[in-house]
Nucleic acid binder design. Structure first.
Lengths: 160, 160
DNA sequence: CTACGAGTTCAAGCCGACTTGAGGTCAAGC
DNA sequence: GCTTGACCTCAAGTCGGCTTGAACTCGTAG
């Protein structure tokens, strides 16, 4: 297939030309020449953009993505790193799942104060927001107890 | 329990005082008075902050979160809206799951060009990246854990 | 050959969620 | 009563990922 100019790439991928230029500037993609001023791309750019989109959809930063892709367009990086990324996502997914359950539950749980509901509290905890552990509360106003005042600053990783 | 000043809230939740002030400014939380200049909060603030953290962990914008919480701290919003949010998360989760699979697969699939591998392509497609549409996930990235903690280098992705 | 339109460059702007810095104020300790 | 130091306010800065605007340059139609 013939080279594609930036407009065609944009049209076929939905990625705005400004974004393509930006990606090029960042080194995520490379044009293979110009026609006049106009950038030309190898059709393989489409795959590469798909990879980038994949990474973006996965919540990865552009820098991370470029670290995952070889300049040649192949997504090879060492297996350990890919697995690490997959595990990150795994944690995220678990958290989101808990939150989803919390929302679904909140939608129909009749408890006046959701924090009184064990299901909800569990979701909060799983969500990683559980550092504000709220004690099972009695008849009165919620009494909050036992929160470790510890501030986390290191890159600790998701709950369990 | 007695009112807590901002420092105590911060200590017990890990949320920086600057963030608490910011949240107050945005109307997400409210202080109930001052001691000198120092803000005082009702202990229920802890629950409210937990809710906010939950929302943030779910990828919701602060504005959305404040729309979900009544001024009184209860998370009530209509069931439809909560369900809608849950469904949003569901989609996100599905996408992320596909991406995770793609990563895991890429880690060990020997195909020179991953796009030639049906498994990978399927993941790309499911991820929504096949149409090159980069669907944003929440404002945290995969590795962000410290929802309420110190600022990580979270590459926020704009909300939809 | 010239005008035009669509691309190009570079710098600046935007958005969300905060953080940081300068300068102000106040309760508490001596 | 005065100092101190912790919080206060307000404005500005940061970061990622782009977008936008002004000024410019070509290839192409006429």
């Amino acid at each position: 297939m013939k080279d594609m100019d930036i407009v065609e790439v944009s049209r076929r991928t939905g990625v705005p030309a400004s974004t393509l230029r930006y990606y090029e500037e960042k080194g995520l993609i490379a044009s293979i020449g110009r026609r006049g001023l106009r950038r030309l791309f190898d059709p393989a750019i489409l795959e590469r953009l798909a990879m980038i989109a994949l990474g973006r959809a996965g919540g990865f930063a552009l820098d991370e993505i470029s670290a995952m892709l070889t300049p040649d367009g192949l997504p090879k990086m060492d297996q350990r790193r890919l697995d690490a990324k997959a595990n990150e996502l795994d944690n995220t997914i678990r958290r989101l799942t808990a939150i989803r359950e919390a929302l679904r539950h909140a939608a129909r749980c009749p408890a006046a104060r959701p924090m009184e509901c064990p299901t909800f509290r569990r979701a909060v905890r799983l969500a990683g927001a559980g550092r504000f552990e709220v004690a099972p509360i009695g008849p009165f106003k919620a009494e909050v107890v036992s929160v470790t005042g510890r501030k986390r600053k290191s890159g600790d990783v998701s709950p369990e």
